[in-house]
Design a protein around this nucleic acid. Structure first.
Lengths: 218, 218, 218, 218
DNA sequence: CTATAACCGAGACGGTACGTCGCGTCTTCGG
DNA sequence: CCGAAGACGCGACGTACCGTCTCGGTTATAG
């Protein structure tokens, strides 16, 4: 999740231990402290009033240390909130309807948290006209959550609720569509319309979605 | 859409002519110039690099004039982009499916414009923890577009494509749900997933939505 | 003391009543109110924090009214404090020594007042490189007080304490010198050295001055 | 003469070398550049039109650097002109009369310089109601020049022109008095009366002063 | 008795400078 | 070589006054 900035800049090859260069190694505890401090600051101050200097102080770390590891506020915040999205799960509730409803409520709960609420839209806004940031958001947050759609479909297919698709390309398109509909509706309801997502809404929405699914599956 | 800052702060009651107070009246041409300059600057610079000082210069106006009328960048940008959203229309294309598809494509085209792309998410992000800003967004942008859902439903009901709802409260809830689904999906696809919305996607999505509509109409 | 700005701009010929032009005449009460408000503001805020807008409010007058009558802060303050200097008198105390000591103490008391303390040095500083202002200070304040030196000398000459001078030019030079010595010493002691002027100091200084006078009177 | 702002704020104890604290040290060249730029700006613009932003540009320094080291315009200008006053000297011209006349002319020449002319009165005016500034002026400018009086007296006493004083307290009072008289008269003549100080005036004044000295020396 | 002219209050206007804040970089010291 | 500390150049912030202007309304003299 963390990406060293100037030296590696890209995630090092997973199994290969990074060649132990000379000099003092980077503090391993600092990363975690910084990311947590970032989340804390997001909760207290919100995106626009969050400053890297403040994060550094909260983390008990020098500002230079921070810039050595992240290119700026955007990148730092993406990493800081990305882990929160990985908490989403898709426990088997026995039916496609229940599975979707469950993930909708989970996602809604996540978006109610002040750190995600303020950070998500902000980094997306910043990613307009910042291609590297857009990529980072995709790999760190968006694409990782598509797994939920895939798992859910697989499970529904195993249950016989959904047919197996032969055209793998169309299947991918459908997964993307479903992902955009679910994530989009929840995000819009929560952050734009600013209305709470209760079980009633989740149920109505899920019903709408699952009912509509049949029509695009042939 | 423009609201004087300290004195009225909220849109004055429409039919009441503003009582001609003493002193030099505010320049009527300045507002339009400022809002246009704001949109231009958004296109060229994007949200985060837009400065009020720069807007003032572009508009040929003093920075103080700007602060006299808007509380800050957020409020200014909301007003500047709000008018763009009012351009959305719902021409009668003969069927609910076609109507929805049309508005989806229109909305997608609007979100492709750089000024809306960069501004919308940003002000929504800022509205977290800024209740007045949230209200302004709702009244200036969000609520105004719900009319499209209402018109579309009415028209579909007239065509017999949708039943008339008796429970007006449930009808309102359904309208909100549909609005969140449409707007959310389009926004998410465009700004988060960053994939273009072509006619194929619009068709698939519309099919999914309209098919699902039946299931929540009883 | 008050000088209309654009129309007369220069003090009108003293005995000639200004030709009663058409239109509403200037408020006669406003001038006094403004000058008093200026002195009040000087006491409370000091020179550098005094603003014309504030003076206008205190005087219950529009800012434009103020600018119609004075060219700016400098001119206004000169007029506002000038009257205070006219309060200085030279009562006959029976001897040159006593007369000088008396005026020294009077002058010191005047300079202890916060409005003169903060204003005098400030306008003098501003008069550097502002010839019109310099003239105004001279005519409104400085030259008017030279009368005290002239009266004192006359009186001392009548008493026989000082000889009558024949060379009128030299007499003028001497008067100027004495004026600079007295005023300068008192001002410097009060405002630069910031030490109080008590009777002991006044006595020592007067002794020094009067004793020295003999040496330049031939 | 230069004083760091937040940390020491007052001139550190002379012999103690400043403990080399952590972090990047302050630029040593910047101080001199800033003070010189300040003097240049004073000459060109005068006190009231001098801006710290402009000084920063002239010095090739960021505005914040300036504010890090001085509290404001007043303090900066005091430091900038203080060094000029240290140039005053008292060469031995053989007699008390000549010595005084010499220093009067030197002082007059100093006050003719535009930077001192415009700055001195201004900072004195500002020091009204600003006790720290008053202290700074005293320590940086005023008290340092009293040395001239002390040296002159000593020399005159050595020559037998003046008696040695036994009461050291009275001696101090006399020195202060003489200082105020000399400095005051020169300042007043130069800046208030705005008349040039030529040798004739200097001679008359010196004669007056030195003649009067005898009367307060017993 | 009505013009007409100059005044007045109020307040918005284009400017300039302010003093602060955060950015991202740099330069030092010590580990 | 890393990390802390902190000064640096830079640029934008939002505010305060400046001196000017444009209003509607008031109060005089002149016709």
């Amino acid at each position: 999740m963390v990406a060293g900035m100037p030296p590696p800049a890209t995630p090092p090859p997973p199994p290969a231990s990074p060649p132990p260069r000379a000099g003092r190694p980077r503090s391993t505890t600092a990363d975690a402290a910084i990311l947590e401090a970032t989340r804390d600051a997001l909760v207290e101050l919100g995106w626009s009033k969050l400053t890297l200097g403040d994060v550094a102080i909260r983390a008990g770390v020098a500002k230079t240390t921070l810039y050595r590891r992240w290119a700026g506020k955007n990148e730092l915040v993406v990493d800081a909130v990305a882990v929160l999205f990985d908490e989403l799960e898709l426990p088997d509730r026995g039916s496609l309807l229940a599975d979707v409803e469950g993930v909708v409520l989970q996602f809604a709960a996540l978006l109610e948290r002040p750190e995600t609420k303020t950070a998500l839209m902000a980094v997306v806004a910043e990613s307009t006209g910042d291609e590297p940031l857009r990529q980072r958001i995709r790999t760190a947050i968006v694409d990782r959550q598509k797994r939920l759609v895939l798992i859910g479909r697989e499970r529904a297919q195993a249950r016989g609720e959904l047919p197996y698709e032969e055209d793998s390309e169309a299947a991918a398109r459908n997964a993307d569509l479903i992902f955009d509909v679910i994530a989009g509706a929840v995000v819009h309801r929560t952050l734009v319309s600013c209305e709470p997502i209760d079980e009633a809404w989740a149920h109505s929405f899920t019903l709408l979605l699952v009912s509509g699914l049949g029509s695009i599956q042939e």
